[in-house]
Design a protein around this nucleic acid. Structure first.
Lengths: 107, 107
DNA sequence: TAAACAAGTTTATATTATAAACCAAACTTT
DNA sequence: AAAGTTTGGTTTATAATATAAACTTGTTTA
């Protein structure tokens, strides 16, 4: 049986897990852009991140499914325009992520 | 042919890429532990991170192959003991990573 | 001495990210 | 006006990565 004398090994992790949806380079970049502006469109995010269209499309969709961003498909003149906006949920998740991350980078 | 008149879209990403070796939850946790101490053994890191042995073994190996940590296999009494220590290169990479990350989290 | 345990490693599988291929509509050139 | 090009994406296939399961080697304990 275990006694007080036995040196206890840590029985819980010292690090809080990171939100894996946000801990991805491209998704993090997207969120980083969106937290600073009211909205941004697909083409802008693509050029700012240098992501391929396919990758961007997929990652935006994941953020959208999670409710972290909203996607609105409109037209600007005759061209389609995909607008992205961060939700309150996304803002909270991002703030949480940053807090958690600080544990890891010791700041 | 392209002219100066053409509105140039951003032609470089606004985010510096993250060191993908470090941008991994477990490897980051390992580095975070090692940066704070002189050395730590496999068993300690395992319990501190709650990683499985297999996963830990693989990730330590990657960090070691990259030259970010050194691994020394010794015995403590009759039991094998795998000691890990961060290298100077690892320390630099970690510092770089943290700096880069700040762009993304705006701090 | 056989069963259980400790400390890992190796290999297989599931998850995730990335890239390649494709599509529709609008513009441009001949 | 038909043919080719560009824009703004989506879908699907592949490559990379993380995780878990199975195994190994040696040790301790019942």
């Amino acid at each position: 049986m275990s006694t007080e004398i036995n040196k206890k090994k840590e029985d819980k992790a010292i690090f809080k897990p990171l939100d894996s949806l946000l801990h991805s380079e491209l998704r993090l970049a997207i969120m980083s852009i969106l937290i600073g502006v009211n909205e941004a469109d697909f083409v802008y995010i693509k050029s700012a991140t240098k992501a391929t269209s396919g990758n961007l499309s997929v990652q935006l969709d994941k953020l959208s499914v999670a409710g972290y961003i909203e996607i609105e498909k409109t037209f600007i003149g005759k061209k389609p325009c995909t607008l992205c906006r961060m939700t309150e949920k996304g803002r909270d998740a991002f703030a949480d992520y940053v807090e958690t991350l600080k544990q890891y980078i010791r700041e």
